[in-house]
Design a protein around this nucleic acid. Sequence first.
DNA 1: GACCAAGTTCACAGATCTGTGAGATCGGAG
DNA 2: CTCCGATCTCACAGATCTGTGAACTTGGTC
Lengths: 208, 208
Amino acid sequence: MEPTEELADLLSPPTLTPGARRILEVASDLFYRGGLHAVGVDTIAAESGVTKRTLYDRFGSKDGLIRAYLQLRHQRWWERMQRRVNQAPGSPILALWDSYTLDAEPSDRGCAFINAAGELPEDHPARDVIRAHKRAVLDLLTELLRRSRGPVDDAESTARQIFLLLEGGMSQRGIDGDDHMLRSGREVVEHLLDLTPPEAGPGSRADS
Amino acid sequence: MEPTEELADLLSPPTLTPGARRILEVASDLFYRGGLHAVGVDTIAAESGVTKRTLYDRFGSKDGLIRAYLQLRHQRWWERMQRRVNQAPGSPILALWDSYTLDAEPSDRGCAFINAAGELPEDHPARDVIRAHKRAVLDLLTELLRRSRGPVDDAESTARQIFLLLEGGMSQRGIDGDDHMLRSGREVVEHLLDLTPPEAGPGSRADS
DNA sequence: GACCAAGTTCACAGATCTGTGAGATCGGAG
DNA sequence: CTCCGATCTCACAGATCTGTGAACTTGGTC
């Protein structure tokens, strides 16, 4: 369930001083709403009642802060999503899906990771956080599918399909500012999960 | 086939002076590769062998240039894609899909419109270009589906599904820097087009 | 009381950003 | 010849950007 190795990477920096926490909190909000390049460190420092000096003492650079921002963002969302998936009365896949719509901010700018990827150069230190995040989601989807059906199946292929629908929906949410495409995607997934039933269906899907 | 009203919007500014053309050409390259905020007007002007004065005389502001950049980007891609779709020996849907992989730059930063949406505020003058572009793609998909099967069908729903897969694949390409997720999506679409055949059983599909 | 990490103060460096003002140049069209 | 659109020159305004240097304060801990 836990992405074993990668999560160490994705955790926010070890111990976070009170000031650093405030900075990160504010940065997280401003970066998400305004974009990475559009928000300056002066604004972040001022808004979090902290001097720029402290910001640089804690995070080293703006790029370091950006990295921490995405780590925090992942951590927060991942925990909430896990809770939903584990407590889901119905399909855990749909619970995961719904986490995207239920845990969204009112100021909806779509997926923070997609947006960040669009702004950051290829060699930016936060790129691996972005990739690890997406990877974790895809892996979890695969795992959930494997668990909910026969062990030998096209779980990976189906996981990729659902993943793509999800990413498409999120990217479109960032463009439209609303959910309607994401909702469309949910219907597809419902349909998909019906068409490929647990294993109760007609005979065992040993398949070719 | 043509998005009637919107295309007037999406066309690049009426007559483009030689200087303006060079500016737009350079800006298109730099914006796509470097991002919108990360590239300054000084760089664009210098790189296109033109003074900043000319840039502002032609495009009014950086935001105006950004808008023109996306318009050009749409125009270019749209024409190439249309050609592929019309000349496709097999499924026009797959031809559309392949346009995303075949007409990609070597420096692959994913979808210019998704990236732009992630960087621009809600009220930016280029936002409607982004939305119109995505809208045009979705509409074309719907139209192609309607044409290739019985007139009364779930063409809209299927179009949305393919659209989401496409957007997911493109957004992922911007993150991974490669095509493999987009290719995965293509397989899904192939499968999808088989499962929902023209209106007869197996056979009447010319197929790719 | 000494030590230490966290944070403050504040000035400053040096670059880069978007955008403008006013006048000169140059080629083509009437 | 004259007018005009396109472009160039070039200085400059004013803001904003990331990042740093050096010394001071404060609260807790051994």
